[in-house]
């Protein structure tokens, strides 16, 4: 497996997009921190980067990469290799290099300018988004044979998780505003990795406001160690599940 990861990584390093992505993140991060002395504000801006921009780049780049690797995949499936090894190597290579890009582009500036629990939470959130959306991309790419259609599906999925899902939740909230919605909200949050990360960030950034409002149920859950562990477990599940599903599909796929 190491050998294949090596070749995937080599290929990705040669790919200027990952380098460009790192560079763009670096410029944004340093720009954000240098523009304002208020580092909390910087972290807030980077939170939008980590929860919106990072998933977008991660899912689209990974989808395209899988399609562009079709030659590589075809060449290697005829070799004495487990398909699982091949597929997991591609995922590992992708997730690792994109994570590296995020760590260099956002992690480094955050550690330099705003080393705090909130900063660390931001880095962890961004890393989770990177690996989760790379996994979702693999699933989208393996299920759709046509490249342009696959990229379309990836963009739609990104839209779903970053925007549409929340809009639907909002509608539900207002439809059922006469009922206690905290518990269902916690459940709904689990179905969206972006929301999960966002709420973990919210607990750091807006604890004062959260204490004031939805209070008890919500905070009791996310504020407790168990709640945090549960959320992290949910994020891990979000990391594993799409990759696992894509692997199952890839193992039976005709090439």
């Amino acid at each position: 497996m190491k050998t294949i990861i090596k070749y995937v990584m080599l290929d990705l390093l040669r790919n200027r997009i990952v380098l460009g992505y790192t560079f763009v993140l670096l410029i944004i991060s340093f720009g954000v921190f240098n523009m304002d002395a208020n580092t909390t504000k910087g972290v807030l801006s980077l939170m939008n980067i980590a929860l919106i921009f990072v998933p977008l780049v991660s899912i689209i780049f990974s989808t395209i990469y899988v399609y562009n690797s079709s030659e590589f995949i075809e060449l290697l499936v005829a070799q004495p290799l487990k398909r699982k090894t091949l597929w997991m190597s591609i995922y590992t290579g992708l997730a690792f290099s994109l994570s590296l890009a995020f760590l260099a582009g956002v992690g480094l500036p955050v550690l330099l300018y705003s080393f705090s629990v909130t900063g660390l939470m931001l880095i962890i959130s961004g890393l989770f988004q990177t690996v989760i959306f790379a996994g979702i991309a693999l699933l989208a790419a393996v299920k759709t044979r046509d490249k342009s259609k696959g990229i379309g599906v990836a963009v739609l999925l990104w839209f779903l998780f970053t925007l549409i899902y929340d809009a639907i939740v909002m509608l539900v909230l207002f439809q059922f505003s006469d009922y206690p919605m905290e518990k269902p909200m916690i459940a709904l949050t689990m179905f969206n990795p972006v929301d999960l990360s966002r709420i973990l960030m919210l607990l750091k950034l807006d604890i004062s406001a959260l204490m004031g409002y939805t209070g008890a149920v919500f905070l009791d859950f996310f504020g407790s160690t168990n709640g945090i562990l549960f959320s992290i477990a949910a994020l891990l599940l979000w990391t594993i599940a799409p990759v696992w599903a894509s692997l199952k599909y890839f193992q039976k796929k005709d090439l």
């Binding site: 290929d11 030659e71 060449l75 005829a78 070799q79 004495p80």
Partner: peptide, 21 residues
């Protein structure tokens, strides 16, 4: 099984290779 492929040499109809290599 995948080990058996060690004993096969395959020449495809259209050889597709990573273009940048």
């Amino acid at each position: 099984d995948w080990k058996y492929r060690e004993r096969i040499g395959y020449m495809p109809q259209i050889g597709r290779y990573p273009e940048s290599m």
